[in-house]
Design a protein around this nucleic acid. Sequence first.
RNA 1: CGGGGCGUAGCUCAGUAUGGUUAGAGUACCUGGUUUGGGACCAGGGGGUCGAAGGUUCGAACCCUUUCGCCCCGACCA
Length: 565
Amino acid sequence: MRFSRLYAPTTKEAPKDALLASHIYLSRAGFISQVASGLYNYLPLGKRVLKKIEAVINEEMANIYAQEVELSFVTPIEFWEESGRVNKFGKELLRFKDRKDNGFVLGPTHEEMMVNIVRGRVTSYKQLPLNLYQIKTKFRDEARPRFGLMRAREFVMKDGYSFHASYEDMDREFDLMEATYKRILERLGLEFRIVEADSGAIGGSGSKELMVLADSGEDTIAVCDTCEYGANVEAAVRAEPRCDAPAPALAYEKIHTPELKSINDLSTFFKADSYYIVKTVAKRLIFEEDSKIVLYFLRGSDELQEVKAVNAVNALEIADVSDEELRELGLVPGFMGPMGLENITLVFDASLKGAKSMICGANEKDFHYVGVDMETEQLEFSDLVQVQEGDGCARCAGKLSYTKGIEVGHIFKLGTTYSKPLGATFLDENGKSQEMVMGTYGMGVSRLIAAVIEQHNDEKGCIWTETTAPYRFNILISNIKDEEQLAYAEELYAELSARGVEVIIDDRKERFGFKMNDAELIGFPYTIIVGKNLAEGIVQIAPRSNSEKIEVKKDELLARLMELK
RNA sequence: CGGGGCGUAGCUCAGUAUGGUUAGAGUACCUGGUUUGGGACCAGGGGGUCGAAGGUUCGAACCCUUUCGCCCCGACCA
């Protein structure tokens, strides 16, 4: 490619809306341009990077016999009604009607469609397993798109689906996909962590997320400082906490506690560690049809994890509750507790199982009970706690700490979540009809573009990794009017092109500094500077990843460049 | 969806409080010249329905109403 022909409108200033490094540099360097909220055009450089990432994914998929397909973007809404996901997806699902008044959606993910092309055609266990995937534009009408390609409404995702005759085989494929995704991210040159995750609305028995580590990541993950354990805080677990302070030696009794509403106040008043105080958190849980208030009970030293709270009662959403709403139910804000409540759903954190000598609200203004033991029989326990930094690892003696991650992949063990409602069955060895066991594997291709830059940039611009760079070499002619420079650079360009190397030559009639700044903003891994010291037979290689320019004799240049590969 | 902010040249923004020549700057772009190792300089030039609609007024980028778009915080987000 010739720079003089390249459409890459670079700018000195970033669009005012860009906040993250990836958004700023991808815009400034002319990779993308925004069309509307959450919608982006990919300019030539952006499209090249997208294809580079896709190529790596395609190669790795081929290695494990996954086959690429392409499903229609516009999908009949019937499929979504059949799976029951229309409501679950809500407004994210962009719906519309065609001229004949038939309902359609723009595909935000393709479980339904993929099951549809398999069911009725795959009818025997002999045809399984099967792993099909596509790399395609998805559309989710996000309530709040942001951060450029990081959270766009229209985005490119690789979505894969596997079909199996048994859970064992699904597990095998799941592990294989995890290993394959790991290899893809390694090849892309990313630092990442595979963590346990909440399965969310997609359902299924287990899931893992691939997190590219970056401070700008939207997800908080808890990682162990000793072992491999890592999990999204939505799903992270910890070692059973211990409290060194003694339990308050108080017999069961109702105590007058005027105006003592906070855990802190109570802790001081009773000289008891907050570990021994029951924290009551009221939330409104929203279900498909209705909503209700649920009371969650935790140790005073813990915080409620809202995703866990939602999962504990199988709700869709969680919302805050006002004091008025609580009073209407006969509850007393500040003095709530588990005792003597009827017709309210109560969920206890697992760490309260068998707890003794606890302090809790009496559901009466200015009163608390002390010396309360948790009756384990009738109570419903669930893990509700958000792990904190410094908590012990559940797997080893290590400590957990937080880090931020960009979710670039999510793999799920679906089981029969979709094959059952959509009727994807096969005949097993005994001629018996079985539902297919499925896995699903997503990878955000366009988000990966942003993730690479979030992790690899400096004050000058993008620093593409070897496998993601739009061009590997940039031949910069310092003075285009110098015939020797021009001739040598053109010769080198022809030679590298002939070798199939991805190379661009900066043949623009611009000054050195201008071209160098563009090269650094765009972020080519290597810029070869053909300049004034060509007269002494010297050219320079300027690697983008560090500021050291390497001087090379021109006769040795080609060999050096090929060594870099 | 709640709270806040912003829409003026391709881009970044000034001008709006207190209405009044032909609406400005920087940058980008075009022409000519000089320059050629870090976004260089000189001269000349093109580019705007001031987001849209309606209203007030002799007169609106500016005041009023409505509306659309974009961004931020939160809620939300496989």
